[in-house]
Design a protein around this nucleic acid. Structure first.
Lengths: 346, 346
DNA sequence: TTCGCCGATTGAAACCTTTCAATCGGCGAT
DNA sequence: ATCGCCGATTGAAAGGTTTCAATCGGCGAA
């Protein structure tokens, strides 16, 4: 590590307030505030004059004071499970897109699946009095979410359903996703499917598996087995694939359905290393359809989740709840979509 | 899209202030504030009593008021080039880790390489009076950064150098990275290197190329060519690789050095599709060493940039500048590291 | 010329926390 | 019994914006 230094001094320099602008422009603070917030209430001449003064003095509104007065922060908070999973950054992008046009900043936090970090973010958002919260919950946060709502913060649950009908939510139909994938594999002539993902307790895993089973049961001679993993990243996929490779050749699956694309990429790596041909010997199907799926050495077929759309819809729900706190709870379920690429013989 | 509705009403419910706590607990607001901020100044009995009252009443500090009084927001703002590139989320993680332990929230924005979005975030951070700003600049923002600093916001440039010696910065030695990579390729017996990346104007591209050229010049019989791309994502890599595949066989490079891992993944995909064997026919070397590099079908060798460390170091610099605004400007240069995997014959 | 009206402008109050000079109360020393 | 001291507590002021009732000024109508 190399370092180089240079001397330098920085003077804070008191910042310009509406009061300063008002006195310089020769108007009252009320008028300056009107120029800022209701320009149509101000005569054209004054408007022009004050705006020029603001410009010249380099006045920048102090958001803390604004918030204090308003009682609520225009910002929206979001807690995702893991920013390192492109799935969530894409959802967040959808949110940001929608909020940006409404002049509402997004404060994004990643819980990293850790209930404690999640809780820290909730503390922060509570102190900040954010007007809305988007969350994919990890820990037992229902009581806190209730409290937030009592205090006037709108809450929408993303990529989960609360079941309790207390909070609006946006999720994707996982049973359908499982069905779509299984149907595709069966139609491509695969008979023994291994579904890799976990932990088993996750609703999403259970639903997807159920969708797969429905299809399998309708097709005699086909089978599915769950290979459970503790996490859902590439190394989990690698390990699970190695487990399958250890099986006697005839007991091996001819199709692997991964619970997300990261796992699928790990599987692809392990199979490639072992010299197994994809898709000839084994087909691989991912889930989510993150950008990396299309960029894999052998482009991955995947069940596409409408990620940005999920963010957008969640934001719409949230904005509606912010603007009208009496709005009803809504659970929106989006549809997944099959994307066929080379890894399943596309 | 399926929807289901349920009626529900939410009452805002005025929030509890220090004044409320004070009157309920039978003490003054000053004491409540001391309990919150300087508990050692309060007698044990009072402390205990007030804390219990706070708990019971569900008091949550209003951060806007606190900020207003303090004159500055404890939060730190960060503008990265692209949250969808894991490189930046990793840097951000480093930042968050360091800040989290200091009780400072991070407000993260992604400019998406768009000067206008960058500017919108700077507006936001200015209004918020954030105490510090970490930025990988896109547009011409020097005047704004100067203004921010005049107003008392500490500024550190990340993954770039300003050259002007006005702002502290943290970057990685790109010439060195180019040298490391080229040396490795030459040592593995490769002779004709194609360096894929761009646009050519980027300092980082120029520096890395210079490092490569230094090595090539020291090894007669070896050559390097730049294949310029407009962006640095997987599709750019795919296109560039196809361009190379169109060359007569003997003119083709036997090693491809990609300017980042996304490009390298695109290259790997195109070569795999064309039946070119990696690393036997062509070696591929990436840059950054994002997690996906290790998870590729053929694990990618890469020049590892210390991403989290970069975030941590930048944060340390920033915190130092926040705590002591007279601190000098420092340009810190971190060292990259070669990580050998299968794509170059590891 | 005076009155009434209306749009434009004003200025004080409110939002909530933190800070700090001033005050209080208790105790040991004289 | 009184004084002085010290730790604990108090209460008012400050910070910048927004809101809104009150006021101002100008103009048309009577």
């Amino acid at each position: 590590m190399t370092t180089s230094d240079t001397a330098r001094t920085g003077e804070p320099g008191r910042s310009v307030s509406v009061k300063d602008v008002a006195s310089t422009a020769g108007v009252s603070v009320g008028t300056v505030s009107n120029v800022l917030n209701r320009p149509e209430k101000v005569s054209p001449a004054t408007l022009e004059h004050v705006q020029r003064t603001i410009e010249q003095m380099g006045f920048i509104r102090n958001d803390a004071a604004r918030q204090l007065r308003a009682g609520t922060n225009r910002a929206v908070g979001m807690v995702v499970l893991d920013v390192r999973n492109p799935f969530f950054t894409d959802v967040a992008r959808g949110v940001e897109l929608r909020l940006g046009t409404r002049g509402r900043p997004l404060i994004l936090g990643s819980s990293g699946q850790d209930a404690e970090r999640e809780s820290t973010y909730l503390d922060l958002f509570e102190e900040q009095r954010v007007s809305g919260l988007l969350i994919t919950p990890v820990g037992k946060v229902l009581p806190r979410l209730r409290r937030l709502r009592e205090r006037g913060t709108a809450v929408v649950v993303v990529d989960r359903r609360t079941g309790s009908r207390e909070f609006s939510s946006v999720a994707v139909d996982d049973v359908r996703g499982g069905r779509l994938g299984a149907a595709h594999l069966v139609e491509s002539g695969r008979q023994r499917i291994a579904f890799i993902g976990g932990p088993r307790g996750l609703t999403q895993i259970r639903h997807r598996l159920r969708g797969i089973e429905e299809v399998i049961e309708a097709h005699p001679g086909h089978s599915v087995q769950l290979v459970e993993t503790a996490t859902m990243d590439a190394s989990a996929g690698r390990l699970a694939a190695e487990e399958l490779l250890a099986l006697p050749r005839k007991a091996r699956p001819d199709a692997i359905f991964a619970a997300n694309d990261l796992v699928a990429l790990g599987v692809l790596q392990a199979l490639t290393f072992a010299g197994v041909r994809v898709p000839d010997d084994v087909a691989i199907l991912g889930y989510d359809d993150i950008d990396f799926a299309a960029s894999a050495a052998i482009p991955l077929s995947s069940i596409r989740q409408p990620r940005e759309e999920m963010g957008e819809v969640a934001t719409d729900l949230l904005l509606a709840a912010i603007e009208d706190p009496t709005a009803g709870v809504r659970d929106i379920v989006l549809e997944p979509e099959l994307v066929v690429r080379r890894s399943t013989g596309g």
